[in-house]
Amino acid sequence: MKRDKRKAGDGALEERIGDGTRADAASAERHEEALLSIRDVRKSYRMAGEEVQILNGVNLHIPRGDFVAIIGPSGSGKSTLMNMIGCLDTPTSGSYRLDGIEVKGLSDNRLAEVRNRKIGFIFQSFHLLPRLSAFENVELPLVYRGLAAKERKAAAETALAKVGLQDRMHHRPNQLSGGQMQRVAIARALAGEPPILLADEPTGALDTKTGADVLGLMEQLNSQGHTIVLITHDLDVAARAKRTVFMKDGLLSEERGGRT
């Protein structure tokens, strides 16, 4: 696969991964048009020999440009749902289509490829690599995409500029404040220009003011056209999103802002 043009690479991936499932004509129209579409997804784990059902048939459709908050108490299955959306895990049954790709049944390697191209992760505890500079952290997804150094540099610099950290590029994470670290993490999520940003409690480790700043940045990114999925247990944080869905006992229900 040719890798030097990111857009071209994307297309090729879609073709390769999407082919087998695109023929799935039975899909609902909505299912087709949505950027992210989860239908009747179930997930169960074996724990101490017992089957534990975490997700009991979740349905969720997110169109391009949306800003969705998923809230729910701990143990509701929202982490599992997040792992599912982030392609860190695959559903036991049901269908999950992300940007035209059926995720269920993909091999580990293809999942890694989907994560690399389609998803930008923003974690609660930032998850920056401590030994790398801000710049090196941001370019990491592009390293795994196989881009040349010049392209990586341009993309990483653009992403860092977007979060206002162009003058902190060569600082290590331990030389940055919490808010700055989360901005670096957001820049890393943006660097690969994925269609979806997936934020897991992005303000959880920040004080109220920096948390508000980070949320402001996310709103701004959403207004620039980035689709954002935000997972939180904080109603105030969720209120900043365009739409909120509530998770309880492995099921989703729409709270506010539209359709399920």
Binding site: G86, L88, D108, N109, A112, E113, R115, N116, R117, F121, H127, L128, L129, L140, P141, Y144, R145, R188, G192
Partner: peptide
């Protein structure tokens, strides 16, 4: 382990 997790979440493949 966590570094490996982060790298994988960013798209590192098994072989990487």
């Amino acid at each position: 382990t966590r570094e490996i997790g982060i790298r994988k979440s960013l798209g590192a493949k098994r072989r990487d």
